[in-house]
């Protein structure tokens, strides 16, 4: 057991957890943040993607001890109140999701992708960058569209700020 202190979606939280606890289970089971999903046991599907200190990471492959002291953003922390993050809005507007199970991980990866690439995203790059996220429903067609759309919106939003 260790005492874990994190900043999750801007709020400080502390929790006691066995050392073998994975970050995803702390988020889901102890903090009730069930938007972060588990889709595999081999760290490949990306359904569990969150941001740790600003970078997209698979939370099923991080022990709580490793995350201790970090800033975590989950899908629940992306929107500002009722206003969707441009990536969330783009997924909705472009039908970038069906069952929704992969969606939180996709969106967290995609936000990180846009941050890293700025406006320089094209279809081929988006497809390569989605390597770590598996979707079984959409055939990725509309996910790619969503990410490209959001990249444009995020550029505009940044310019406006």
């Amino acid at each position: 057991m260790s005492a874990i202190k994190l900043t999750v979606n801007g709020k400080s939280v502390s929790a006691d957890a066995e050392d073998r606890t994975l970050l995803v289970h702390l988020l889901r089971d102890q903090l009730g943040l069930t938007g972060t999903h588990v889709g595999c046991d081999t760290s490949q599907c990306g359904a569990c993607t969150v941001h740790i200190d600003g970078r997209a990471v698979k939370s099923c492959t991080v022990l709580v001890g490793q995350a201790n002291g970090s800033k975590i953003t989950t899908i629940e922390g992306l929107s500002r109140g009722d206003e969707l993050h441009p990536m969330q809005a783009a997924f909705r507007d472009n039908h970038g999701l069906q069952c929704g199970y992969c969606t939180p991980g996709m969106i967290m990866s995609a936000v990180d992708m846009v941050h890293r690439h700025g406006g320089k995203l094209d279809e081929a790059t988006v497809r390569q960058e989605l390597e770590g996220n598996i979707c079984r429903c959409t055939g990725y067609h509309n996910i790619v569209k969503s990410v490209l759309d959001a990249a444009g919106r995020m550029k505009v939003a940044n310019a406006a700020e």
Partner: peptide
């Protein structure tokens, strides 16, 4: 979609 994109599914 609103619930799915915000993690509220």
């Amino acid at each position: 979609d609103k619930r799915f994109v915000t993690g509220k599914g």
